[in-house]
Design a protein around this nucleic acid. Structure first.
Length: 907
RNA sequence: GGGAGCAUAGCUCAGUUGGUUUAGAGCAUCUGCCUUACAAGCAGAGGGUCCGCGGUUCGAACCCGUGUGCUCCCACCA
């Protein structure tokens, strides 16, 4: 089979994804294995996946695939969120384009359009999740407006109402006058800007023509003023006790009240109190029993109560009122003032504080167990405790949650009203009537349902439970098996919106935490550090990236630059690195395929072709009796060297496998990936394959070949959770496989032999040092050298002779016990290497380099000696630290001696 | 205004109870290679006042204090 020049992801990706689906590898049913449950943070149904989702989904897939390959029954539930405000806004916009006004439709008609819209665009995110290779159980796909889910939300509402945890009340809320809905505090975004502060004078109701001055940013609200407030300690106003003032333009008579809330320093020291339009004024109004005059309609226009400019938009009215105030002499001063304004996260309009009747959840009691779960460590937050403090603070200071939204897209609040305004809460009209009958003795009343729907988060907080029908069928087999989930992966920005509330719902309805670990990913920014957003247009299209680089490369790119919990600077550069990594692996495959054709069956070695059957991960190198340096010369030195390489790489694998396990346990996924990357690229490709590579068109012995194939398989398995497509493809190309990598179980981690590993490190160091010596002396790669080694441990080198020869292009190794004149001298630890060449050496440069090194070594020696000469150090430091310093000293002295010797050989 | 975090190579970051040779990786840069798996590559190299200052200690990138600069969260003074 002819392999292409480079790895070509497109066909491979769709082939394997289809295959995995057809084998139902991603589908989970309760069984005797331990579960590993992950519920996807459901993306907005009409949205597209942005890079933040890509990061989240990739992280989840890595954890899920790793668990699936480690004996767990992995279950990853996909789904989407109806996202009431965002989706309704989109549907309204779509209707507008068609020339349809939402207000001309009935609720039913509108919902029909909304569901059509959802069916049309809701598939996009699922397609993207699929292209990314996510191993989700598609049979479990859940939408937060599915029938069962809708019922669960209603059921919970009724339950909390009956427990007294949901109430209806008049409250100051954040009002979005464009969407005509209340917003939660979290949906308001504040922006700094320069506004204007207007100083107005209100005429006092006294005999004389006297005024009191106030300052306001919002002159259009003066018609809602019901008091003027000053500080009781303010001497300027002490004489105004019991005095009244008149609101300009409309001449309403209002009292002057006294409260310490007012800041003496700010403005004029007198505050106009407008309870209907400011949260602080509202609280002041409650305290002083002030009248509430609501002068602004729900669409942001002036109301009848304003008396003037009725029906005009609030900002238009502001301009006109300023003009009129000025003309009539009430405006005394205008000044620039930097302030913060709240904007609706959804529609972008300025949020209007407004009195409104809304539904609320009492949070205090629900918050307690949710706080305890995290404080007690039942839920562990990663990374570290970075977010613990924020989580705690929010729950300790939690405020009641406004859950009603003036929208149609969502779960309609199950409250029923009769003509007199009597209200009951019930799931159906019939039940409501029954309750009316029982409670009020009213038979068959005409009831209307509350028009509002519930906040989207009021459905999302049930997600970990209800995807397994835990609310609608409490205690069912599935929820008992899968709940609580193993890990929740989400963005740190929704820690309050979602994470804390899921914990509350979980504690309330399942009596245990919804997940054991929470992994917070950072925000994805562009490479300039800016948040990715539609407005900036700096968020790339995921599918375009996958087409360009391949899904594995995208996954690699986003993971390699993603330290846990920190923001990620997204740079396409890293995707390119991922693509190059694919190719590197692909090319290693091509090399092995070349060897496959010309293997050498070697009867003297224990494993012929038979060993190729040992695909169960249990191969061992020979009989395990590794002996260094025995019979290491002559014709079989190559085989001995191969044994070394095989033994060394086996142990590198053991070592890295346990490192990766440890890193992944700590959710340090980026580091685990880098570790695997380096094992494959550096240790496997750059070192191991070069060490065992046969000469040009020479055969490779069967044992080496089969071991190498097995290592390659193990590497692919190790990498598979990160890069599932390329690894599965190569696993099957390496040899005929009966199984799939996707579900191949990891073998137990074995302890590595540190001795062989450090021998390998020494070899690498020696090769690099000699190559550096060659390079510095302008020896061309093709120029052959003779190598002399001065060492106390000859067997270190005899066992790897052929590797060393090949890697430094030497034509033979000899040992010596003294310096050799006119050679390039290289030192590694205590061993010296003399590179002899026919080429004329640049002695000047050689000398310079040696002198530079000498200086460095002397400086180092001096610092060590200083340390050892310090009596207090010798007294206080631990013995092993002192021993180490003594070794440093001895080594440095040795090196200095070597350098001086070498210098003396240079004429 | 209150709180949290960060500051290490040109960039992005490691550095796991203070001591493993005067600090590591990837990317980028430079030098030499079209060596038959791979130029999307190979071999090598250079590059750091560990933000400033002060302290604790025999010893500090690491602990303490302080200053500066950035980021985030919370609150929302008319």
């Amino acid at each position: 089979m002819e392999l292409t020049k480079n790895f070509e992801p497109a066909a491979v990706e769709s082939k394997w994804y289809k295959h995995w689906l057809s084998q139902r590898y991603f589908n989970s049913k309760p069984d005797s294995r331990p579960p590993f449950t992950v519920v996807i943070p459901p993306p907005n149904v009409t949205g597209v996946l942005h890079m933040g989702h890509t990061l989240n989904e990739t992280v989840q897939d890595i954890l899920v695939r790793k668990a699936r390959m480690s004996g767990f029954n992995a279950c990853w539930v996909p789904g989407s969120d109806h996202a009431s405000i965002a989706t309704e806004a989109k549907v309204v916009g779509m209707l507008k384009e068609k020339g349809i006004d939402k207000n001309s439709l009935t609720r039913e008609e509108f919902l029909k359009y909304a569901f059509e819209w959802k069916d049309k665009y809701g598939g996009i995110i699922y397609h993207q999740i699929e292209r990314l290779g996510c191993s989700v159980d598609w049979d479990r796909t859940t939408f937060t407006m599915d029938d069962h889910y809708y019922k669960a939300v209603i059921k919970v509402f009724i339950d909390l109402y009956n427990k007294g945890l949901i109430y209806r009340g008049a409250r100051m809320i954040n009002w979005d006058s464009s969407a005509k809905t209340a917003l939660s505090d979290e949906e308001v975004e504040y922006k700094d800007l320069i506004g204007k502060l207007y100083h107005l004078q209100y005429k006092l109701d006294t005999d004389k023509e006297t005024y009191i001055r106030i300052a306001t940013q919002r002159p259009e609200t003066i018609m809602g003023d019901t008091a003027i407030c000053v500080n009781p300690h303010d001497e300027r106003y002490a004489h105004l006790k019991g005095v009244y003032a008149f609101v300009p333009l409309i001449n309403r008579r209002i009292p002057i009240i006294f409260d310490e809330y007012v800041d003496l320093e700010f403005g004029t020291g007198a505050l106009k109190v407008t309870p209907a339009h400011d949260i602080n004024d509202y609280n002041l109004g409650l305290k002083h029993n002030l009248e509430v005059v609501d002068t602004i309609n729900e669409d942001g226009t002036m109301s009848d109560a304003a008396q003037i400019y009725v029906g005009e938009d609030r900002f238009v009215a502001r301009k006109k009122i300023i003009k009129e105030l000025e003309e009539k002499g009430f405006l005394t001063k205008e000044e620039a003032y930097s302030t913060r304004l709240g904007y609706s996260q959804r529609t972008g309009v300025v949020v209007e504080p407004r009195i409104s009747t809304q539904w609320f959840v009492k949070m205090k009691e629900l918050a307690k167990p949710a706080l305890k779960a995290v404080v007690d460590g039942d839920i562990k937050i990663h990374p570290g405790d970075k977010f613990l403090a924020t989580y705690k603070y929010w729950l300790e200071n939690v405020k009641d949650w406004c859950i009603s939204r003036q929208l149609w897209w969502g779960q309609q609040i199950p409250a029923w009203y009769d003509a007199d305004g009597k209200m009951v809460v019930a799931e159906t009209l019939e039940e409501a009537k029954e309750i009316f009958h029982n409670q009020y003795s009213i038979l068959n009343p005409t009831l209307t349902q509350d028009a509002d729907v519930l906040d989207t988060w009021f459905s999302s907080w049930l997600w970990p439970t209800q995807v397994f029908k835990g609310i609608t069928k409490p205690g069912n087999q599935e929820v008992k098996y899968y709940y609580p989930g193993s890990v929740l992966v989400t963005g740190q920005d929704i820690i309050f919106f979602w994470v804390a509330r899921m914990v509350m719902a979980g504690m309330e309805y399942e009596k245990q935490v919804p997940f054991k670990d929470v992994y917070f990913t950072g925000m994805v920014r562009d490479k300039l550090g800016r948040k990715m957003s539609k407005q900036l247009g700096n968020s790339p299209d995921l599918l375009v990236l996958i087409d360009k680089y391949g899904a594995d490369a995208v996954r690699f790119g986003i993971m390699v630059s993603s330290p846990a919990g920190n923001d990620l600077m997204f740079d396409e550069n890293s995707l390119e690195q991922g693509r190059n990594f694919n190719n590197k692996i692909w090319n290693a495959l091509k090399l092995l395929k070349m060897w496959e054709a010309r293997q050498l069956g070697d009867g003297s070695r224990e494993s012929g072709d038979g060993s190729r059957e040992s695909g169960d991960g249990s191969w061992e190198s020979g009989d395990g009796s590794w002996e260094t340096g025995v019979g290491s010369t002559g014709h079989n030195s190559q085989l001995t060297s191969h044994d070394f390489a095989i033994h060394w790489f086996q142990n590198r694998l053991y070592k890295v496998k346990s490192e990766v396990d440890e890193l992944m346990k700590q959710f340090r996924l980026s580091e685990a990936l880098k570790t695997i990357y380096s094992l494959i690229w550096d240790d496997f490709c750059s070192w191991y394959l070069e060490w065992i590579k046969p000469g040009f068109e020479q055969p490779v012995d069967a044992n080496t070949y089969s071991k190498t194939i097995n290592y390659f398989e193990e590497l692919m398995q190790l990498l598979h959770p990160y890069m599932p497509f390329v690894t599965e493809e190569i696993y099957h190309l390496l040899k005929e496989q009966r199984d799939d990598l996707c579900v191949k179980q990891f073998s137990a981690v074995k302890e590595a032999d540190e001795h062989i590993l450090s021998h390998g490190e020494l070899l690498k160091q020696v090769i690099t040092a000699i190559r550096d010596g060659r390079h510095k002396n302008q020896l061309k790669p093709k120029e052959i050298i003779k190598l002399f080694i001065e060492t106390d441990n000859k067997e270190n080198y005899t066992s790897i002779e052929s590797i060393l020869n090949k890697q430094v292009n030497a034509d033979g190794i000899s040992f010596t016990n003294k310096a050799i004149a006119n050679t390039i001298v290289v030192a590694v630890e205590n061993d010296k290497f003399y590179l002899q060449t026919d080429k004329e050496l640049d002695t000047l440069t050689l000398k310079e380099d040696l002198l530079k090194d000498l200086e460095h070594q002397k400086g180092f020696l001096a610092s060590v000696e200083k340390k050892l000469g310090n009596a207090r150090f010798v007294q206080n430091a631990r013995p092993e630290v002192i021993a180490l310093e003594q070794k440093k000293k001895a080594d440095a002295e040795d090196r200095i001696k070597t350098i001086e010797e070498s210098l003396s050989t240079i004429s």
